[in-house]
């Protein structure tokens, strides 16, 4: 597969390490009330769709960017690639 890295252009998927569902970005706050239930969902409940999926890839043999790749798990078609940092900021993660 070819992943179109937002900074580096097309790169072979062999340069990347796959992590999984991009929802891992949305880590709950550990200090809130009911954190345990939220973390249970976060750590264990993930979608595994046949079709469009947003997933995390790490450019380990490259610039070490974490990317969010929107990929069809059936056809392997990749429709969107973003820097995970930008996605995280958009979804409200900060510091």
């Amino acid at each position: 597969m070819i992943i179109n890295h937002p900074l580096l252009g097309p790169c072979d998927a062999q340069e990347f390490i796959y992590k999984g569902d991009a929802r891992l970005i949305d880590r709950p706050d550990g200090m809130i009330e009911g954190a345990e239930a939220a973390f249970f969902d976060y750590a264990y409940l993930r979608d595994n769709p046949a079709g469009q999926h947003r997933e995390l890839w790490f450019h380990e043999q490259g610039d070490r960017s974490w990317l969010v790749v929107t990929r069809n798990t059936v056809t392997h078609e990749i429709t969107h690639v973003e820097l995970a940092r930008d996605v995280a900021r958009k979804s409200g993660q900060s510091a």
């Binding site: 891992l24 970005i25 070490r64 995970a84 995280a88 510091a95």
Partner: peptide, 19 residues
């Protein structure tokens, strides 16, 4: 060495991007 580095980069870029 490699997985920990990967994990720390994940935390830095995906969990706390503004640190």
């Amino acid at each position: 060495a490699v997985p920990v580095y990967r994990h720390m980069e994940f935390a830095r870029q995906c969990l706390w991007p503004d640190m």
